[in-house]
Computed example of a mutant assay.
Amino acid sequence: MALKILVVDDEPMIIDVIKAYLERAGYVVYSALSGSQALKTFRDVNPDFLILDLMLPDFSGEEICKRVRETSDVPIMMLTAKTAEEDRINGIVIGADDYLTKPFSPREVVVRVEAILRRTKQASGRDILSFNDKDLMIDFLKKEVRVKGNEITLTPNEFKLLVAMAEYPGRVYSRLDLLDKMQSESYEGYERSIDVHIKNLRKKFETDTKNPEYVITVFGMGYKFGGKLDVSNPSI
């Protein structure tokens, strides 16, 4: 069954071009010209991917992203004419998987969509990882994280960041390495967004944020995952 993509933009010509390229690539494409229409269509069709313009006539794409993230971890790619670094960082922090500035190539849109969907599909095929005698457990299918048996609520980007490090315990990742893991492209200058996610992760499941057990800073280099992988593959 073809995957469904919702394209949200207040410029019909942009929607038509993106739609033509995505349909040529085999996707079923829905569209919306406003924020309110986007949310209604999202609820009605439950798309597999959301392409979201940030500057809409009724309310912002950032607000739509926040509302979608309350109930869904569907991949989101933001389209915008905003070029300021803070705008891009904010988009990533609130839950976007990718960020593309206008003008852009519609072929690049398709390539980025397919890259993100490949990663999503790969992640959905995993089972469970547990660390430190089941102290920390990551369920890839349910996208759940449990610490000492208690479920921890993570944002989609926090979950992706944790998974990127936990897959290879002890490996040191630079900020750009982690951006590569979280998105289809590296964005030089946006490494600070990784620091924000790291800080939030520690607050949510580290017993002592100043002496973290799992998300460890390697000064001058980046971050690594400090948990010891359990030999067995348990069930939650």
Rank of each mutant, 00 (worst) to 15 (best):
A2D: 09
V8Y: 11
D9H: 13
K19S: 13
S31T: 12
A32K: 15
G35W: 10
Q37P: 02
Q37Y: 03
L39H: 11
K40E: 10
F42T: 14
D44A: 14
N46G: 04
P47F: 10
D48W: 06
D48S: 12
L52H: 14
L56K: 14
E63T: 03
K66R: 15
R67H: 11
E70L: 10
T71D: 00
S72E: 01
S72T: 02
D73W: 07
V74G: 04
P75M: 03
L79E: 04
A81Q: 06
A81D: 01
A84N: 01
A84W: 00
E85C: 03
D87C: 08
R88L: 01
I89V: 15
N90F: 10
N90Q: 11
G95R: 13
D98V: 04
Y99Q: 09
Y99H: 10
T101V: 15
K102Q: 00
K102D: 00
S105W: 02
E108G: 03
R112I: 05
E114D: 10
A115T: 14
A115R: 15
I116C: 01
L117Q: 03
R118P: 01
R118F: 03
R118N: 12
A123E: 13
D127V: 13
S130Q: 05
S130V: 04
D135K: 15
D135F: 12
D135E: 15
L136E: 02
L141C: 08
K142H: 11
K143H: 00
E144Q: 14
V145E: 05
V145M: 11
V145H: 12
G149N: 12
I152D: 09
N157M: 15
L162N: 01
A164F: 12
M165V: 02
A166V: 10
G170Q: 06
G170T: 06
G170H: 02
Y173N: 07
R175T: 04
L178D: 10
Q183S: 15
Q183E: 03
S184Y: 08
S184I: 09
E185P: 06
S186C: 08
G189W: 11
R192G: 04
I198V: 15
N200R: 15
L201Y: 05
E206C: 04
T209F: 05
N211Q: 14
Y214M: 10
I216K: 14
I216E: 07
F219G: 10
F225C: 00
K228Y: 04
L229E: 11
S232E: 14
N233F: 04
I236G: 03
